[in-house]
């Protein structure tokens, strides 16, 4: 995961004969009295151990299917183009929640606690587990353009079209992180002043803390055909 405190934490498993994209870790089943997440003893040996015996596949970083839908509607002098795009069935590790959705004093100093619908005030320890892996299926309206063609009579001008176009207009998703987009590559953590590393295609499904918000762009324009 990264600093503070979660370096050398396993997040993915690459296993011979198995598909790529396995998110790997412990399963949270509650909260211990000391505020640490209670993790499931998967091996059944009586207690949870910080080892692979008590870790399992807790998510899938690659989508089951993708959709793209591009449609243009024309009515009288108007035209409307919509481009929807979606990905379904993939999970993401929400690193922001993994570090900051708790009352861990040394991690966040009790300031700027991330509070999503999963927030549990009893948790006082940042420790990666299944609760930070979320279904990140989404549908996005990537682009919408509304245009109007003015009727032209003057000679020398063939057409005049005014339009308004927007990118990244909305996202429908249950994911609580910054961007539910599929992460086919992992760029590693950029903690302690480091820079993101070279993209690693063997570790899909991790939203790192270096993720910045997507910008929404509105364009207004006029086309004149001579």
């Amino acid at each position: 995961m990264g600093a503070p405190g979660q370096n050398d934490t396993q997040l993915v498993r690459v296993k011979e004969g198995d598909p790529l994209g396995q998110i790997w870790g412990p399963i949270q089943i509650g909260v211990n009295p000391d505020g640490t997440p209670r993790l499931q003893d998967l091996s059944g040996d009586g207690s949870y151990c910080n080892c692979n015996d008590d870790r399992t596949v807790i998510g899938n970083g690659l989508p089951k299917f993708l959709i793209g839908w591009n449609n243009t509607i024309r009515y009288k002098n108007f035209d409307l183009n919509l481009f929807f795009r979606g990905a379904f069935g993939h999970d993401l590790i929400n690193s922001y929640r993994g570090f900051y959705e708790n009352l861990e004093s040394t991690t966040v100093g009790n300031w700027n606690v991330v509070k999503t619908k999963y927030y549990n005030p009893d948790i006082t320890k940042a420790q990666f587990n299944s609760s930070h892996v979320e279904d990140a299926s989404f549908v996005k309206l990537d682009n919408a353009t509304l245009g109007y063609n003015f009727p032209v009579k003057a000679s020398g001008i063939r057409n005049i079209r005014a339009f308004i176009s927007g990118q990244n207009l909305f996202v429908i998703t249950g994911y609580t992180g910054v961007d539910p987009e599929v992460r086919y590559f992992d760029v590693n953590d950029s903690d302690n002043g480091g820079r993101p590393g070279s993209p690693d295609p063997l570790s899909p499904g991790i939203e790192r803390r270096s993720t910045y918000f997507t910008t929404r762009i509105i364009t207004v324009g006029i086309n004149i055909g001579l």
Binding site: N7, S105, T106, T107
Partner: peptide
């Protein structure tokens, strides 16, 4: 030493 949320690092 592990200092609360800092320096646990998977227990290594």
């Amino acid at each position: 030493t592990t200092k609360g949320g800092d320096w646990y690092d998977g227990g290594v």
